[in-house]
Amino acid sequence: MSETALKDIIKPENLVYQKTRLMTDKPLSYCPGCGHGTTHRLIMEVIEEMGKEHETIGVAPVGCSVLAYEFMDVDMQEAAHGRAPALATAIKRLWPDHIVFTYQGDGDLAAIGTAETIHACNRGEKFVIIFINNGIYGMTGGQMAPTTLEGMKTSTSPYGRDPNIMGHPLKITELVAQLPGTYYVTRQSVHTPSAVRKAKRAIKKAFENQLNNAPGLSFVEVVSNCNSGWKMTPVDANNWMEENMFPFYPIGDIKVDGQLVK
């Protein structure tokens, strides 16, 4: 293609996609095909669209997304493993007009941080929790998570998760939906373009709830692949996720405007 032809194409009216402004230029450290990066982008798009980048404080977890603060161009705090909801509780109570969110994996939110998660939800803290459920400990090399499915092989359940020995997978999202302090609870995924669009609507709704001072916490689970941890190609991992994760962790809203819908 010649120089002139390119110039004719690169025009604002032809723009179909661009890097989210509130994502930094730092290359993402995630494995190709992983849902962490897409979910980061959706959060930053929502904050940008709400015009709240100067009034947002995010809390990063310990897990693969421990470096979320490197990629999200807003003020960020990095919490100890599982403690993000405690940090966010104080931030939101001390800056009630600001937008506050935590971003946590399943080990972070549903194992070591279960108490902080449940109590922040139960107190009805008015921030947003974004919860990446990939059924495994991605960061530490693929150990069993609280959300690991029955029979699923991980490095610490090498013959598959046996509930008699290792306990059952934890549906923490259904659990927090039962608490009076949660206002919006939903489960989404980001593995197809249409799923990404739906997830974005859910994340937007969660943040708008906070903006509107809704009486309670908004909780968005994103079921995501961990292709490295699952030892599959990204495509196989997404297929496996649809076949195995979605039946146990069904996609859709669980609680809307304080009312259970499922």
Partner: peptide, 10 residues
């Protein structure tokens, strides 16, 4: 555990 982490956040 939560109190001290609330102090971190706040």
């Amino acid at each position: 555990v939560a109190s001290i982490n609330m102090l971190y956040g706040g």
